[in-house]
């Protein structure tokens, strides 16, 4: 477990209206068991002692489920490992002397707030436009009154595993949110509970996605590769089918 010395090139940007730029920092003697964010903690403590402002980055649960961490590491959202969020990436996957480039998510619909922190409230607004089943508290039937085949429940779960981090948008050349939107649309359209609002839901969510400034899907498939929850691009097909069937009929 020898110490790891790294050179970090990090995007620094004071606020959404400032022009940002890369700054270079050296960190030395890191433990390879550290997580990537713990490496950032070390850097930030170092910066504080040098009277330099620490690098702002989003993070919270640090166990790969809250979806808050969001760094483009050497050009890839969440870094080099498949199916892994930044917080679950460990330094054992880097080598002594590496130069690591760290940038924020870049997309028109995710404006930079500061350094590596971006505004993802557009995702919230997409869910608010229809990403739910309208059921008031207290009006639900017994849980077992709606039998759901195991494979359907599993498939809905695979879609529901989305953590809303936005890596799919960050990696897409069009900054499309199709994987995110289709995951929620598919979770609910697979389940019997989601049928009554199925048509309306997909129309509204797609319209909201477009109005937020996300680009169109051109089937490159980068989103599926970078998704830390490995959500399948198949859901985009399902969403498009639903959307097209609705709009051809009407």
């Amino acid at each position: 477990m020898s110490g790891l010395d790294l050179t970090l090139k990090i995007w620094r940007q004071k606020s959404s209206v400032d022009n940002g730029g890369f700054e270079t920092y050296d960190v030395k003697g890191l433990n390879s068991h550290m997580s990537f964010l713990e490496m950032m903690d070390v850097l930030n403590e170092q910066l504080v002692t040098q009277n330099k402002e620490p690098v702002a980055f989003d993070h919270d649960c640090r166990e790969g489920i809250c979806g808050m961490c969001s760094m483009v590491i050497n050009g890839r959202p969440h870094g080099p490992l498949k199916g892994t969020t930044t917080c679950q990436l460990h330094m054992r996957h880097f080598n002594n002397g590496d130069i690591i480039t760290i940038e924020p998510w870049r997309a028109k619909a995710f404006p930079v707030i500061k350094d590596l922190v971006v505004d993802r409230s557009s995702f919230d607004r997409i869910i608010q436009s229809g990403g739910y089943i309208s059921v008031n508290t207290g009006s639900a039937p017994d849980g077992n009154a709606i039998p759901i085949p195991k494979d359907i429940a599993e498939e809905a779960f695979d879609a529901a595993a989305c953590i809303g981090c936005g890596a799919c948008v960050a990696t897409c050349k069009n900054a499309s949110a199709s994987l995110f939107v289709s995951a929620k649309v598919s979770q609910l359209s697979l389940l019997p509970q989601g049928q009554p609002e199925r048509k309306e839901r997909v129309n509204k969510m797609v319209a909201q996605m477009d109005s937020e400034g996300f680009g169109h899907c051109t089937n490159t498939g980068a989103c599926e590769v970078e998704c830390p929850k490995e959500i399948s691009i198949e859901y985009i097909r399902k969403m498009n089918l639903d959307y097209n069937v609705n709009n051809i009929k009407s």
Partner: peptide
């Protein structure tokens, strides 16, 4: 009632082969 409510919202709980929870 919590389970009923969550099922109605579309929470994908684990199921048995017969479709029950």
């Amino acid at each position: 009632s919590i389970i009923d409510q969550c099922v109605a919202q579309g929470v994908p709980f684990a199921r048995e082969y017969g479709g029950t929870l």
